[in-house]
Structures are given as structure tokens and as C-alpha cells.
């Protein structure tokens, strides 16, 4: 068996449908008849195993309440019509449905009428200066590791490498020149630990928005730029604290 139930956007949509179908006067809705039909609709929804949204149930309760109030009403002339609020909600809802139809009947951009596609906002040069993400830095690190000189014999020594020191170094070197390449920065380092410390330092400075890291083109030179100069002292203080925190954590 196949039953076609019309789909309603919500309880108001269903009520308007029932009013129209029965040719009721919206200003004088026979409340017990409409309540009955409304509940019948919910029952058929249930039979079809359709989930009934809470707002439909809330409306059913409201209809029953209005029905009771209508019955209890003693003097029709003096008292406020219990249906009044529902009627004004229905009328405004119907109006908005018509507004929706009105809007849909307009000449809609990209449905009925079209524009010349927008001009490119960025110039070509700006487009290749893409800002780098931390993962790009990691790729570059891999590359540098490959190029690092491999010593013929090895002596194992415990080396103390400090990220704070590297941060200070980067701040120092970029404040002289405003900009330098990543290769320049890590030139001549002796071990992987130093490289890791440099990368951690760069990430920390990026986070603090003290430097900006840009790359002209894929696999191109990575440039480090200084963004904030005036807050140097404040930043250094912050970095010291960052260093202390790290030592505490490792202890």
C-alpha cells in the first residue's frame, strides 16, 4: 500500500493547508473540526513510521487548549477570542510564505540572470607569495637533513640545545635586516638537534606573530620576515618565561 502524504514545513504549514482544503474562514476557524483533522494527520504520519517533530505535538496541545477554552467561554461578546493569537500567527506565517514566493519570482542572480565573472583581486605576484604552514616547514627540514654533511666517524656527546637561544638569535638577526632566508639561518649547524630547535623557534615566533614566513613559489626559497619590532622587549620577556616553562616541564 502506498500513501502519499503531503509534506509540510511545520505545524503552521499544515494548518494553512487544512484551512484551505476545507475552505474555512481563517478569521473564524471551526476549532474542533480542524483539531480533529490535524490529529488525524499526525496519526497517519505515525502509521507510516514517520518521525513527528516536537513542534507538531506542541501545536496539537495548543489546539486542544484553544478548544477547551472555547467551550468554557461564557460570554462570547466580552471575552477575548481564544483563537486570536493562533489566527494572527497563521496570517503572518502565510504572509511570509507569500513573501518567499515573491522573492523566488524575482530575476534571481545565477538562476535567471548572470554577471561577468569577477576580476581577479590579487595580482599575479601576490598570488605566488603564499604564506607557509608548519607542514611546509617540515618538508623543508627533510630536505635540509638530506643535504646535511654526514660525518665519517661519530662521537656521542650530550649537547644542550636551547630553543630560547634560537628565538633570540632569530630576533637579533631579523632586526638587523628585517628579512633573511631559512637556509641562511640554519647554515653551518652541526646537528639535527639545532635544526629542530630552529624550527621550534620559528613556529613559536610565527605563533606570536613576530615573524612571517613566506615562500615565493613551490620549493622556492623560504623567507623569514619580521612583523613586529616595537614589542621586542616584551616579547623577549615572554620568551624567557616560555623557556622557564619548558625547563620546568622537562624536569
Amino acid at each position: 500500500m502506498k500513501i502519499n502524504l503531503p509534506f509540510f514545513e511545520g505545524p503552521l504549514d499544515l494548518l494553512l493547508y487544512l484551512i484551505k482544503k476545507n475552505e474555512f474562514d481563517i478569521f473564524d476557524i471551526p476549532i474542533s473540526r480542524i483539531t480533529q483533522e490535524y490529529l488525524e494527520y499526525l496519526v497517519s504520519m505515525e502509521k507510516l513510521n514517520m518521525e513527528i517533530a516536537t513542534e507538531f505535538i506542541v501545536m496539537a496541545a495548543k489546539l486542544l487548549q484553544i478548544k477547551v477554552m472555547m467551550l468554557l467561554r461564557e460570554n462570547e461578546e466580552d471575552e477575548e477570542d481564544p483563537r486570536q493569537e493562533l489566527v494572527s500567527t497563521l496570517i503572518s506565517y502565510q504572509a511570509f510564505k507569500e513573501v518567499a514566493d515573491f522573492l523566488l519570482s524575482r530575476e534571481i542572480l545565477n538562476r535567471d540572470v548572470f554577471l561577468k565573472p569577477p576580476l581577479k583581486k590579487k595580482t599575479e605576484e601576490e598570488e605566488i607569495w603564499t604564506e607557509l604552514s608548519p607542514s611546509d616547514l617540515m618538508l623543508l627540514m627533510k630536505d635540509i637533513l638530506k643535504r646535511m654533511k654526514k660525518p665519517s666517524f661519530q662521537e656521542i656527546e650530550i649537547e644542550k640545545v636551547s630553543v630560547v637561544e634560537k628565538i633570540k638569535l632569530i630576533i637579533e638577526r631579523t632586526s638587523e635586516r628585517q628579512t633573511m632566508s631559512f637556509e641562511e639561518l640554519v647554515e653551518g649547524i652541526s646537528s639535527l638537534m639545532h635544526l629542530i630547535a630552529f624550527i621550534l623557534a620559528i613556529l613559536e615566533l610565527m605563533r606570536l606573530q613576530i615573524i612571517k614566513v613566506v615562500q615565493m613559489r613551490p620549493f622556492g626559497k623560504i623567507m623569514i620576515y619580521r612583523t613586529e619590532k616595537k614589542f621586542e622587549e616584551e616579547v623577549l620577556k615572554g620568551i624567557e618565561e616560555y623557556g622557564e616553562r619548558r625547563t620546568q616541564e622537562s624536569n
Binding site: L12, D13, M59, F96, L103
Partner: peptide
């Protein structure tokens, strides 16, 4: 379209006000 129509005429309007006008639909 219903929500857009309500906002167009009732702006500035809150979500609760919109939902009340639609019969409590989220």
C-alpha cells in the same frame, strides 16, 4: 526562503523570534 523572508521584513530579528513565527520549527 521562509527564514529569509522573515528576516527581510523583521530585521534585526533573533532566532527565537524567527522560530516562533514559523510555529516553533528549529
Amino acid at each position: 526562503m521562509e527564514v529569509l523572508s522573515i528576516i527581510a521584513y523583521k530585521q534585526p530579528v533573533t532566532r527565537a523570534e524567527i522560530e516562533a513565527m514559523r510555529g516553533g520549527i528549529d
